[in-house]
Nucleic acid binder design. Sequence first.
DNA 1: TTAGGGTTAG
Length: 514
Amino acid sequence: MIKSPILQSLVSSRDDITHNQEAVNTFRGKEQEILYLLKRCNDVDEFKQIHARFIKLSFLCSSSFSASSVLAKCAHSGWDNSMNYAASIFRGFDDPCTFDFNTMIRGYVNETCFEEALCVYSEMIERGIEPDHFTYPFLLKACTRLKSIREGKQIHGHVFKLGLDDDVFVQNSLISMYGRCGEMELSSAVFEKLEFKTAASWSSMVSARAAMGMWSECLMLFREMCREKDLKVEESGLVSALSACANTGALNLGRSIHGFLLRNISKLNIAVHTSLVDMYVKCGCLEKALHIFKKMESRNNLTYSAMISGLALHGEGEAALRMFSEMIQEGLESDHVVYVSVLNACSHSGLVKEGRQVFKEMLKEGKVEPTAEHYGCLVDLLGRAGLLEEALETIHSMPIEQNDVVWRSFLSSCRVHQNVELGQIAARELLKLASHNTGDYLLISNMYSQAGMWDDVARARTEIATKGLKQTPGFSIVEVKGKTHRFVSQDRSHPRCKEIYKMLNQMEWQLKFE
DNA sequence: TTAGGGTTAG
């Protein structure tokens, strides 16, 4: 029983056709109509049935154009297993053209099957099909995601040989590929050679630095970009810059970008809003972040995880849990990042019961596979609350590999709660996993010194010295009234150092009292 | 058919 009107129309067209020239002519006339219907079809089963009819009819006469269109429709549909089906169509082609190879590469990249995309490209080269300027942006994206710099460089060579190195899309893809693979000099070299630097070229440079966590370089480039005349600054570059502001505490610049966005873009999209929320939250303006969040027309998981982790950062664990409930009520499904944010919020607000419950529900639902991050949060939650035995049991119950972070978190809790016996277990496991980490030896040494075990302190310190390890002091940055202040651990160089440490002592005392 | 964007443990 065929319910679909589209299929009914096709069946009647097939019934009319007989194996003669008249039928062929009829089909030729129908071909465009079939392609039109195929393009409009939104359902995988419907597509498969139409495709089956298409095959039956097309042995009479089919243009490679039609076949390529069918393949493209399938490869870019986003349906479940669409690429498997697309591959079966593709394998049926005797002489796939450049467009067909591009379709397959693009399809695989969109489905995050990057290695498959590279394999299709290899086959393309082996079969002597010449790539074009559409091939490389997709392919370079695959290299970027795989961090395959070796393949990326080889492909750059092909681009050069084929004379496609003057295509602006290919150039920008190269900038992005090199930048995100950590090859900043090569990325800049491609950028500097550009005859016309477009908004996307700048954006590729800025966002690659943001993706690598090079926040100050990112902002430097962003400022340079803003000085360019006749350049229409687009949202993507601004989003990366906002991310850099968030991570460096550059509130003033973040505010300016927000102002620029409001003045120049009529309707801000969800990504821009999310980065604004994140920027305000990380720069200390929780209320402003909440205001933007509440005014948003629609929100997704990324928006919620930014807001939930923001609330956690500000010590608002219960509000973070309420936000999580709202997200579920809004019909969104929690993903692994949101769970990390929620568990983290519980951990930092001492919400042990709630955190346990969230973790239990996550396992019960089974939609999100627990990762080391989730276990890390749970161990941290239990450890901070002094439930060291339960934290240790949690580590032992992990169905995945225990990593250094989990043991470090547990060790830290053992130190805080002065349990040297369990701390020694953690220290042993940690040193097995991550050697040459100065911070770990210091953590171990501090634990022993608190317990007055001076021989063990000396052993840990000797270990640091004999291994020649050096510790980079940690720091935090805050911007107050347009001025950036950096607080480096143990730093005494500030002119008002005495007052700062007096205030810190006072705060510590008050916290202990509370 | 093509480039560039947001969230996450310790």
